[in-house]
Amino acid sequence: MRLHLHLDPLGGIAGDMFVAAMLDAFPDLTDRVLADVAAVLPRDAGTARLERGMSRGMSVLRFGLHGGHAHDHHHHHHHDHATTYAALRDRIGAAPLSEGSAHHACAILHLIALAEAAAHDLPLEKVHFHELADWDSLMDVVAAGSIVAALGDATWSCAPLPLGRGTIRTAHGILPVPAPATARILQGYDWIDDGIGGERVTPTGAAILAHVTGGRPAPTPPGGRMGATGMGAGTRDLSDRPNVLRVTAFDIAQGADRDRVVQLACDLDDMTGEEIGAATDRLRDMPGVLDLTLLNAQGKKSRPVTRMELLCDPARAEAVAARMFDLTSTIGIRRTEVARLVLPRCSTTVAGMPAKTVGRPGSTTTKIEDEALRAHETLASRRAAAKNIV
């Protein structure tokens, strides 16, 4: 089984909504998560609690801190050292947590700290977490880290995020929605305006989403056999929908790995064959370029054109596009995000010759690399050699 988790932020995403949705879908993780939370919270902070409830007629789970006192309530006039990034990171690191929980919790915390440092022009170690000033927010980070660690190498996708409207009151005064830290963390993600105002995605929710998706948003699940679903509710009541984050689990098909690449394409109608060949060679040598294909087509005004289609790593797409503009005469490039199915493969040797072995759903195939067969002068001898070797 290969687990894929798809998030539907109908109401939005906050830390407590994520934890509640995941534990609704995977109740077997509850003991682990609550133990990790108890290990990191001070004794007088209260107790983490899961509660079954309703949100506009839907059965939902809520996650929150009950009893105790939020530790910043008596520190209105100065920064509490316990809420600096360094102090919270050290607290997580010192707690006796389940395997992997501290790693993922600290990674989520780090994303929030980077965004806050950039927003306020502060060194990372000096960042003070106003939005994590209550113990329940630190609890959300640790609980999310525990869940992500327990699910191992699961992959994630998320539907477009609700933008929200209006302003929120923060320690830095009134700010527009989404908050600056949220906007920084989720640059490159898809957003929609569904007409409902307020803060719909919190910095903690944003950091959890960016962490599980690796900063590379995929808006749709890859498909597969549907498994568990869960709904985690926030504290607000929305006018026309449940205020929930829904998670849906899929067992995606065995055999092929799914990833996402960027396709860059343009049509060239005023370059010579030599110029196109030179540009193609240089583009193929660029880091992150996975494939490049040239196609003959007919363009506007019945001109013959060469269509250049290039696949590349999303992280390199901007650099590759800039190089395409430098090396070709095009004045426009089409950019599309493409889902791929990729079979596992490895390089090997057969009879002393380099070969590639591919794992297929029902078998394994091996093919001699082209360079090793180029010495054969005819197609027949080349095919015979490859057949005998394999």
Rank of each mutant, 00 (worst) to 15 (best):
S239K: 15
G12W: 09
T220W: 06
R49I: 05
L186E: 08
L7S: 03
T378E: 05
R360D: 00
H75P: 06
E371I: 02
T182F: 12
T336R: 15
D259F: 14
A35Y: 02
L3I: 10
L138Q: 09
D194K: 05
A70S: 10
L294R: 13
V350R: 12
G164N: 05
G197C: 04
T357D: 00
M231E: 11
P178C: 09
F129M: 04
T357I: 14
A154V: 02
P287S: 06
A384W: 08
F63M: 04
L310Q: 05
A386V: 10
T378G: 00
L341C: 12
L3N: 02
A315K: 10
G188P: 13
M22L: 09
K356M: 05
A210G: 02
W135Y: 13
A150G: 08
E369G: 11
H128P: 14
A48P: 10
L294S: 01
P304A: 10
A87D: 12
A21C: 05
D291G: 09
I192A: 01
V358S: 13
A372I: 10
A380Y: 15
R307D: 00
H79T: 07
V19Q: 13
A228G: 14
R383E: 10
G215V: 08
E337K: 09
L29A: 02
V342S: 09
K300C: 05
H130Q: 03
G195Y: 04
R260E: 06
L290C: 04
S302Y: 02
